[in-house]
Design a binder for these strands. Structure first.
Lengths: 219, 219
DNA sequence: TATCTTTTGTGAAACTATTCACATAGTTTG
DNA sequence: CAAACTATGTGAATAGTTTCACAAAAGATA
């Protein structure tokens, strides 16, 4: 009997991140024509333990068949539903410097259902120019355009120095989910989800690892 | 009496990541002409608890003065030393598609001491072309060039489908630290540090958060 | 110099996450 | 169809991380 997710029990951040890994692994398994997959094999592919896989999934229901494993395609869809990626999300890119313009062309986002519909900048030389079929809009028009195009997520790729001002505008326009690439700690109201992506931090981690002959559990 | 880091006790991944945050905060504090900073204030700036800050630092020694706090500039240098970023690292970029070429121009890496010295691709149309002052080399010459230029870290920004072949070459050339942007789980020997950066995963996390009215501790 | 205040550094406690281990339920085989 | 096998789902045990709480150390005050 599948337990319905009540939304009551607290799901840990790590579990959610692993769901993304499972989803990716299942997409691959589907292409390899697997019909079912055991927690053991799924764990092996993502360098986790079978118990971890089963425990993670058990928070959301009971998806497997004892003696057989999990149905690949069905589990994939179930995870997509849990993650909320069983639909297309309208995303806007704010800032088209190096990172911003690269991400606009990044196929992976589109593939996972994150459709970049609008692109903004405050640089007059960039406004009006074409980035992969999208015309760069003036950041001054952002509040209106975000609403008009029903944008639900924003990727912020602006210089750290202006990031707080711009995120205030983004929040003001009603956006509740923001992925920030500026290396600075931004303030947002409690009901806005903010994730920070800091690529230097990953290199610093590697630097620490080499410098200290550190042997972590390779994630 | 400062306790010398023995390298024996296990430092958690989260602690290391927070060191990066402290480092960044301290750099800012230095610019704001702070001479000392309390764990309380430092915690506030990075949305952590004072106890967390003190505990993290205590793994590496005793850097503060009771009643006063931590000396900003000195602590910054100490953390730089711990993270191994008190020097310049020679880095190579492998793959100059969207992400790769954006990262080559990404100022933040340079600023943090990660100097991209070589750029590789296997696409004949790209080889020989100029990316921000760097000529794209043929990936066939990678083993030789990595050694000649004393490269210690590689950023892998190639399509998932070829990532395993290419990382095998990178490992073969003696590289011990790799930051991978391909959304696939790569195999490397035990003595090679591999970090995966998956930007779609961050958007999926936001998608989950919105879809489930999830309220995490905003990290 | 004595007292008060501040803030560190750190064991211990509380909390969170992972792994274990096994009853259970289903498949497969002869 | 019964026995053997396989693999889930999950409480309990273990391991790991964060927070608490306070003694101790240093600065500030008078």
């Amino acid at each position: 009997m599948a337990k319905k997710e009540t939304g009551k029990k607290k799901i840990s951040e790590s579990t959610i991140r692993r769901l993304s890994l499972y989803y990716r692994a299942l997409s691959l398994l589907e292409k390899e024509n697997y019909e079912t997959i055991s927690s053991k094999e799924l764990a092996k592919r993502e360098k986790l333990t079978p118990a971890q896989v089963r425990k993670d999934l058990s928070f959301f229901g009971s998806f497997g068949t004892r003696g057989l494993g999990y149905p690949v395609t069905e589990l994939k869809h179930r995870i997509a539903k849990i993650l909320g990626i069983d639909r297309v999300w309208n995303v806007a890119m704010v800032g088209v410097g190096n990172i911003g313009s690269a991400l606009v062309s990044y196929k992976e986002f589109q593939k996972q259902g994150f459709a970049i519909k609008l692109v903004f900048d405050n640089d007059q030389r960039k406004i009006g120019s074409n980035h992969k079929g999208l015309i760069v809009s003036d950041i001054k028009d952002m509040p209106r355009l975000l609403r008009e195009h029903k944008i639900e997520m924003v990727i912020l790729a602006v210089p750290a120095i202006v990031a707080q001002y711009i995120i205030d505008d983004v929040v003001g326009a009603g956006i509740k989910a923001i992925l920030n690439f500026a290396p600075i700690n931004l303030q947002v109201p409690d009901d806005v989800f903010l994730r920070n992506e800091n690529m230097s931090m990953e290199l610093e981690y590697l630097s620490f690892a080499i410098s200290n002959h550190y042997k972590p559990d390779q994630k």
